[in-house]
Design a protein around this nucleic acid. Structure first.
Length: 262
DNA sequence: ATGGTAGCTGGGCTA
């Protein structure tokens, strides 16, 4: 069995203890982190290496930053989303892992731009970033290998993935252009693991810090694990673990995890 | 209509 999880921690400095606690409980083989909000050198590798994880990290001062923690050896990495050398934002890292059985598994930690406010260049950057991500996903699919693209996509795929879709129609997370971009990526042949396992909706992964959103379960589903056909055919289950969202000083996101029969 | 929260940073931006 191979378990792959993703969690937007909203600062690894603030969430180091929570991340260690969750890793000890859930023991995923792989954990993709987003919004580590620290520079690469400041990432607390030791805390995770002590638990048996190898680390691939691309940080940034103050904002963004992603990482991959893996119990298995990391063979090669792609640091930064390919396709634009001028992009300064640390939102993508990819690693090829050597599995104990001798095979390989590719995984990426993804932090797509938020895109708000919509009347600003931020939405354009989001859509450009997603187009570039789609082009890279196409390249990966051409290898016809098992892989997972896991992270915070900042996109609500369907109306049933938000507590009140009418209130979100003009938000960059639910704007038609954003959903179209996400659907184009899925249409390449990728599977949304949570959607595949929970067609009914209401499977939220994020609750705003404000206005008691967590207590009222006013959430969004914006953290996704996309699987290549070779990985999807081995999908056994998907779990959203809401427990860490209930802890003191939580991230506003909670982990999503898939189990693959490989 | 506003402010409500959190993190980084040291005022305002990002989410």
């Amino acid at each position: 069995m191979l378990t792959v999880a993703t969690w937007n921690v909203n600062s690894i400095k603030q969430r180091e203890i929570a991340a260690v606690q969750w890793l000890k409980r859930a023991r995923p083989d792989v954990l993709c982190l987003q919004e580590i909000k620290c520079q690469t050198e400041a990432f607390p590798r030791g805390a995770f290496e002590d638990l048996g994880y190898n680390c691939a990290v691309i940080g940034q001062k103050s904002f963004n930053g992603v990482a991959i923690l893996s119990k298995f050896p990391i063979d090669e990495t792609v640091v930064g989303l390919p396709g634009d050398d001028t992009d300064e934002q640390s939102r993508y890292i990819e690693a090829v892992l050597s599995l104990p059985g001798g095979g390989a598994f590719r995984v990426a930690s993804v932090y797509a731009p938020n895109g708000n406010p919509v009347a600003s260049p931020k939405l354009d950057y989001k859509l450009e970033w997603l187009a570039r991500f789609k082009a890279h996903a196409e390249t990966l699919l051409s290898y016809e290998e098992p892989f997972a693209l896991a992270g915070d996509y900042n996109i609500i795929p369907r109306g049933i993935d938000v507590y009140n879709p009418a209130a979100w129609t003009e938000d960059a997370l639910y704007r038609l252009e954003s959903r179209q971009a996400f659907r184009r990526i899925l249409n390449l042949g990728l599977a949304d693991a949570v959607e595949a396992c929970n067609s009914g909706g209401g499977q939220f992964t994020f609750w705003d810090y404000q206005a008691g959103a967590w207590q009222k379960n006013l959430g969004l589903r914006i953290d996704h694990i996309l699987l290549s056909p070779q990985a999807f055919s081995r999908l056994r289950s998907t779990v959203i673990d809401r427990t860490p969202r209930s802890w003191d000083k939580p991230s506003d996101h909670t982990p999503v995890q898939v189990t693959l029969g490989m």
